[in-house]
Simulated assay, not measured.
Amino acid sequence: MVLSPQDIHNKEFSTKLRGYNIDEVNDFLDQIIKDYQIVLQENKDLSGQLAESKDKLSYFNDLKDSLNQSILVAQEAADKVKTNSKKEAEITNREAQKKADDILNAADEKANNILEEASRRAKKLAIETDDLRKNTRVFRQRLQVMLESQLEVIKGSDWDHLVEETPTTTYEDIEKVVGDLDNTSNSGVESRTKQDNHTDVVEDAVNVDDPNETVVYYPDDANK
């Protein structure tokens, strides 16, 4: 059993012959009581500090566990956010790629349509140009034939006879010469036109056999 200061104070000793001095013993016991009270108070204070430290230690241990749990939760949340962000980025990337592909496909289709339309118009223009060139050549040939025929008629002896100042020239003679001029012109134009058409067919045949020449097929020629 632990002695208290009161126990020390109430302690009584028996006296014997030639024993210790009672006053000195009492003074020493008083000093022991004081020192013992100080030690007990320090022990009490230390016990209180120890209890407080234990409480703080328990609090910090609980806080540490809570922080560790919070860190785990935060880590899990961060992992989920990272995973979701990665999935959303992949989805966004796929959607952007799809939109880009759609835009490129639409642009390619539009460009192809424009090229096809331009090619069709170029072919049509080439055909029309070639037709115009042929028609112009035919017109030129016909005009040349007509002028040559008229010139030949004008240079003929009939016109010489017609313009002579003789009393034998009559209205019937002039009408006959003019009628012959018309008949000669018409027959010359028709004959030269047939010859020109035959020449065009021959030229087309020659162009087909020539590998260096560009051949244009016309619907009218194909039907023939």
Rank of each mutant, 00 (worst) to 15 (best):
S4Y: 10
K11H: 15
S14P: 03
R18V: 09
R18N: 15
G19Y: 07
D23T: 12
V25T: 06
N26G: 07
L29N: 02
L29I: 12
D30G: 10
K34H: 06
Q37N: 08
L40V: 13
Q41P: 01
Q41C: 03
N43T: 00
N43Y: 04
N43L: 02
Q49G: 02
E52R: 07
D55S: 14
L57Q: 11
S58N: 09
S58L: 05
D62H: 10
K64Q: 07
L67N: 11
N68H: 04
S70P: 03
E76L: 01
A77F: 01
D79V: 02
D79A: 05
K80G: 01
V81S: 05
K82W: 00
K82C: 00
T83Q: 01
T83S: 02
N84D: 05
N84A: 02
S85C: 03
K87M: 02
A89I: 00
I91C: 00
E95R: 03
K99Y: 00
D101L: 08
D101A: 09
D102R: 08
I103S: 01
N105D: 13
A106E: 10
D108C: 01
K110V: 04
N113E: 11
I114P: 00
L115D: 06
A122N: 09
K123L: 11
K124M: 05
L125H: 06
D131P: 01
D131W: 06
L132R: 13
K134R: 13
R140S: 13
Q141I: 15
R142W: 06
Q144H: 11
L147G: 08
L147R: 14
E148A: 09
E148D: 14
L151W: 08
L151Q: 13
E152T: 14
I154W: 04
S157N: 10
D158A: 05
W159I: 05
W159G: 00
V163T: 15
T166A: 10
P167H: 08
T168A: 12
Y171N: 05
E172D: 13
E175Y: 08
G179M: 08
D180A: 11
L181Q: 04
N183F: 15
N183S: 15
T184W: 01
T184E: 06
N186R: 12
G188P: 01
V189Q: 01
N197L: 15
N197W: 11
V202L: 10
D204V: 03
A205E: 13
V206H: 10
V208N: 03
D209F: 10
D210G: 05
N212K: 14
T214C: 07
T214Q: 12
V215I: 15
V215C: 07
V216C: 02
V216N: 03
Y218E: 14
Y218I: 09
P219W: 04
D221P: 01
D221A: 13
A222W: 11
N223Y: 07
K224V: 15
